[in-house]
Amino acid sequence: MHIPDGILDPKVWVTAAAVSGIVLARSVRYSKHKLEHRTVPMMGAMAAFIFAAQMINFPLLGAAASGHLIGAALSAILFGFWPSTLIMSTVVIIQAVVFQDGGITALGANILNMAIVAPAAAVLMHKLLQKLSLPAVVSAVVSGWVSVIAVAVVGALLLALSGVVPLELALGTLLFWHAFIGIGEAVITAVVLPFALRSSFTLSNNKEMLL
């Protein structure tokens, strides 16, 4: 879900950029208080891993379409919401600036989607499922899938607000493809999570960070 330049209406991408800016300013303020120095390299390694994993487009149902990991659920479950916004933003900004994957004017919208909405959805789902004391793998799978669905919904809203496609059509088409892409996200999240936890890729104050 990397929106290129030219599709979003200026009032939509300016608003999205403003919202992303406000949230990231909070993330930065938060990390100044809470983020410990020694945890930075492991979060950097997770950012690098997510960048790499996003390059792997997997085919969908023999259709002429593909999908790839977002990684927001993975980083949000490991590090919590605020740190994961910084991890995901780093990936999304580098993709846009260095690799032309996602537009420059659409950068705020892409950050909003993949670095704010996706980890928020994953954290909320993860917390809810933890309360029901379901197995960790179930929580990872559901949170991963839900994070992709949330991105598809917000993406459809941004497109509809830009007037390039009617809302119902955008929702229907994006949700159709992302329901399948979400399965990929769910599987990869559930498979990688135990390896990351074995490497102690998590924060001592994770409970607090999730808030």
Partner: peptide, 18 residues
Amino acid sequence: ASSHPDGFEKAGEETGYI
């Protein structure tokens, strides 16, 4: 990796916004 369009591009081809 698959070189097919991703979900966003595919939906954009189907609905025209791409």
